[in-house]
Write a protein that binds this DNA or RNA. Structure first.
Lengths: 340, 340
DNA sequence: CTGAAAGCGCTTACAG
DNA sequence: CTGAAAGCGCTTACAG
């Protein structure tokens, strides 16, 4: 098995120096057109590829982005929230279109990651995606900032730290959903999902929800908010708890679609019909949302745009430019789970 | 912004040579215990990370695997079949557990990829995953073999080429599904999905299906096989065509879950009830399969095991060992779409 | 057990 | 427009 050709092999065949080969392959204007074509032809014939490690070592740039996806350690280890899978698809495409390779890694939020991707020059920057307790997460952010790592993240705006985020306008999204439920005649709307600083995105959705209630002269009932992490199982358990609590409610706003799906299961097991007895709305618009029974009304997050923005902003940072946190609007996708 | 520390910085602080630092960090038995601990402590203090490019260049190994996911160019560009997303998750975890980084790339099957991942030393080997016309794909396989690239692939066994595949026993899976439909009293079972060498996995499922029919003294009706690629839209269109054809059928075996979901939509639009009028079965057991209405009976492919096997076999190849093609059993997941 | 040295395959400043 | 040379940051054979 003969070894891979190097630029010296090409230089030899082309009768030029190795420096010229390197220039020719990089389309340097310094090189004669004719020489360039000859070199490139030979490179193609030999199936030559520039050695990534050598070129990255020399230039100190890897043309690679690392995507770190955190998972909640409490969730089932085999299931990734489809919402993040969709983000992953979009980020992959966006980075490829910019000529960057994508390294991916899944990590437990509680693991001792030091984001060695940039430290070890594997990647020029990092995209952070995931779920889990924000308080744990914040420490890691501080560490990254301290190391002057280039990174952007998906999520709510971070107020106190110099961090570039791309996220949805969760407050307004929450407002929209609850307003829709109210417009459909619901008056006692439960909220399932963590509503504390441990989960800033969910908290914003909850605050939007509360605002909509107040703006429509209804009253926020704290007993109608039940904690849940981003899983189907958590949604199921939370809805069970809600039913056991013996507080009246005619709708559930689930902080994400997976929670909504779990809640629907619990309601149906209790022989309640959706939306007649209880309306249910979600957040995200994952693929499954179209297939639930009834199909789920939800606030859609635009993952395609999100992926593009994340990559764009990270590249700006890598190139020493400025980048701003950006919130994207959500759009309400009305299906059958909230009535008409 | 001060630059990253190198092994020379550590050597200086530890009062030893750079060679010793390198050995100490790699836990070489050649280095004195005390020296090793001192060096490692300083490395930790300085937040030193071995430069990946330098070490890969030197050793000619990248400790990285590339995952190439092909998409059918005819399918909607924003949607990746959830089945492959699930495989991706499993492969990511398996490669991380072996200490390998994972580079991912999505490619159109018709694009002119030359799998430069290994040629450019970005990766030590490649995992191929995807869908699309097998005839296009085969050329690429030949190219990879010619280049002596280390790779494994997901899919049916390749007979004529020295290729290591991991796949499901599609023939038996198809047999199981159809036998289940027959056991539920169905006699005229349509098959939706490509049943030619363009799609070997689907073809095997079809052949298993035909075998089950014959073994139960029924007759295979060629008019009940309709072509479709792996998408919801293709399933929808194929079922429409089937309905328009005016051939009698009481069940549909869809070559994958996405096709099944599309077919169910077409049936329901035609006011047919599932499973009473028409039973429907799929293949894959994607997450959505539990949520369709009615929930879909399907042949489950074990993506977790598949990912582990793919990584394991690829690493064997990289280390110069032998690896064999392996077919995994499928398991029938009985829900409501085929009756009882 | 340790150090000096070579070299992995590039890119690019310098000299012509 | 081209070439000779340096050097990116490691790992490891060689010498001691």
């Amino acid at each position: 098995m003969k070894s891979k050709p190097t630029s010296f092999d090409i230089a030899y065949q082309a009768g030029v120096s190795q420096s010229t080969v390197s220039r020719a392959l990089r389309n340097s204007p310094l090189v004669n057109e004719e020489t360039r074509l000859k070199v490139q032809a030979i490179a193609k014939k030999l199936n030559y590829k520039v050695d990534k490690n050598a070129s990255s070592l020399r230039t100190q740039q890897s043309a690679t982005i690392a995507l770190l996806l955190f998972e909640d350690p409490t969730s089932d280890d085999s299931l990734i929230n489809p919402f993040f899978l969709s983000m992953l698809g979009s980020i992959t495409k966006a980075s490829a279109s910019k000529g960057y390779d994508l390294l991916i890694s899944f990590q437990q939020m509680n693991s001792d990651w030091h984001a060695d991707f940039e430290d070890s020059n594997k990647a020029d920057g990092i995209i952070l995606l995931g779920y889990g307790d924000y308080h744990d997460y914040e420490e890691k952010l501080e560490h990254l900032i301290e190391q002057k790592t280039h990174f952007v993240r998906w999520g709510a705006e971070v107020k106190d730290l110099p961090v570039v985020s791309v996220g949805c306008d969760n407050f307004h999204g929450g407002y929209q959903v609850t307003e829709h439920l109210i417009a459909n005649g619901r008056k006692n709307i439960a909220f399932i999902g963590c509503a504390t600083s441990h989960s800033p995105e969910f908290l914003d959705r909850y605050l939007g929800h509360c605002k909509a209630i107040e703006n429509h002269q209804l009253i926020v009932n704290k007993n109608l908010q039940i904690e849940a992490i981003s899983t189907e199982a958590a949604g199921y358990n939370a809805a069970k708890k809600l039913l056991a609590n013996d507080v009246k409610f005619d709708a559930i706003f689930a902080a994400c679609d997976l929670i909504a799906i779990g809640a629907m299961r619990a309601l149906q097991e209790a022989n309640l019909t959706i939306p007649n007895d209880i309306a249910v709305a979600g957040f995200d618009d994952i693929q499954i949302a179209s297939f639930t029974n009834p199909p789920l009304t939800t606030a859609k997050q635009n993952t395609k745009l999100a992926g593009e923005l994340l990559v764009e902003k990270l590249l700006a940072l890598i190139h020493g430019e400025q980048a701003q946190t950006q919130l994207m609007p959500t759009s309400l996708v009305i299906r059958k789970s909230c009535g008409s």
